[in-house]
Each structure stands twice: as C-alpha cells, then as structure tokens.
Design a protein around this nucleic acid. Structure first.
Length: 103
DNA sequence: CAACTGACGATAG
DNA sequence: CCTATCGCCAGTT
C-alpha cells in the first residue's frame, strides 16, 4: 500500500467541491505532513488520472496556478473558469471567495 | 539500491 | 516587490 500520507492526500483532493479550490500546503497539513506540499504536487502529478481527481482545484499558496504556460497553465485556468472561479488581474484566485478548507 | 527531480512553502535578506 | 536557500519526501531514472 502507498503511504498513509498518499492515501490521505488523495482522499482530500477527491473531496474538493466544484467551484472551490485549496492549496498544496493545506492538503499536506491535513495529511499530517505540514511541510509536504511538494509531495502533494507529486502525488497529483502521478495519480490524478488513475484516481479521477480534480487536480485543477489545487493551486499554490498565492492562489495562482503553478504550471508553466504551454504545460497545463491555460488548461487548468480554463477548467476553473468553467466552474465559476474568476481570476484577478494578476491571474490570482480570490481566496476569500473560493478557498475550500478540508475538515 | 542511489541519485535526481520537483503542480510547494516558509523564511531570510 | 524580488531572489536565494532550506526542508519535506514520493516518484522516476
């Protein structure tokens, strides 16, 4: 079996409601690995498809998409906008409106 | 098995 | 505002 951390991360991500977003750090913290944000990203990268996870609802702590242009950035933004999430001029998401906290 | 990589984050300057 | 550096450790090679 994969680590408890991995299982927890997948569980949390699968629970993110449409129209909301959360961050790598928050997920990591709830999976008992406060400083494991990078692993959350890695898990998403390798397991989002097989676990049918809403990977696009996870952004970094600035409310911005971490992907690079031409490597998923536009695709992710498009999916978020399609769910009603708006970006400001700096292409950042307003956490006061869209942040989802697992619990 | 060892080394390397990296959708991140906090901190320091 | 910015860059640099360290910590964390699952995947990949």
């Amino acid at each position: 079996m994969k680590s408890p951390f991995t299982a927890k991360v997948i569980e949390i991500i699968a629970a993110i409601p449409a129209g909301k977003v959360t961050t790598y750090g928050i997920i990591a913290a709830h999976a008992n690995n406060k400083r494991g944000a990078r692993q959350v990203a890695m898990i998403l990268h390798s397991s989002s498809a097989k676990h049918d996870l809403p990977w696009h609802r996870v952004v970094n702590r600035n409310g911005q998409i971490s992907l690079k242009r031409g490597h998923g950035y536009e695709r992710q933004m498009k999916m978020l906008v399609a769910e009603g999430i708006l970006f400001d001029e700096g292409q950042r998401i307003d956490f006061s409106k869209y942040l989802w906290w697992p619990r």
